[in-house]
């Protein structure tokens, strides 16, 4: 009979009326964030960064600004450059993650946060100080070593620079002789 399918449609909507809502009321509830989530803040390990600016070169938009000067300690022994500026212009960032892919020393990671709304555009530029102070909750985007550690950015503890590399951190230390480890020497020897 004509109209039977329409009745069927009414039944479909009625069954959905009985269902639990699918949506999530955001500030109270949150959807599960997956470990590879490419978040708004970046996680940067200064200890690992050599200032090679691979990320800046590889960024499709050119929003990473890096200014370095030769290190005062032992540049000839392969020491890293001193980083003066490391600005990420977040307002133009499209979170493609290519900078992370380009980083040869596993120093730059996508972050896992996403609530970085600001009222002024200038606040959207992540400066080197903010990068230094930010919580180290790296995303596992393009970092298979974190995935094999079963690391979860949301729930696991923040990771130190020694834990995140593809190679052991001691290799890293050996390679860059004059590296300043910022008061953690005692710990390193242990």
């Amino acid at each position: 009979m004509y109209g039977l399918e329409m009745a069927k449609g009414l039944l479909v909507t009625l069954t959905n009326l009985m269902r639990k809502p699918f949506t999530v009321a955001y500030p109270e509830q949150r959807v599960r964030q997956h470990p590879r989530f490419r978040g708004e803040e970046f996680t940067w390990y200064e200890e690992r960064c050599t200032g090679c600016a691979s990320c800046a070169k590889y960024c499709p938009l050119g929003i990473i600004k890096i200014v370095t000067s030769p290190s005062e300690t032992a540049p000839l022994q392969g020491d890293k450059y001193l980083l003066e500026t490391f600005d990420i212009e977040l307002q133009r960032c499209m979170f493609c993650g290519l900078c992370v892919e380009a980083c040869p020393y596993d120093a730059l990671f996508m972050g896992s946060g996403f609530e970085e709304g600001q009222y002024r555009r200038t606040d959207l530029v992540i400066s080197i100080d903010r990068l230094r102070q930010a919580d180290k909750n790296p995303s596992t985007w393009f970092r298979p070593q974190l995935e094999s550690m079963d690391y979860r950015p949301g729930t696991s503890r923040p990771l130190g620079w020694r834990d995140v590399g593809r190679e052991g951190w001691r290799w890293h230390q050996r390679e860059k002789a004059g590296m300043r480890l910022q008061g953690r020497n005692a710990e390193d020897d242990a």
Binding site: Q33, H34, R36, F37, R38, M94, F95, G97, M110, W141
Partner: peptide, 12 residues
């Protein structure tokens, strides 16, 4: 998709 590559729309 987010699980695969960390983004939902602009997947790359």
């Amino acid at each position: 998709f987010e699980m695969l590559c960390g983004a939902r729309i602009t997947v790359s």
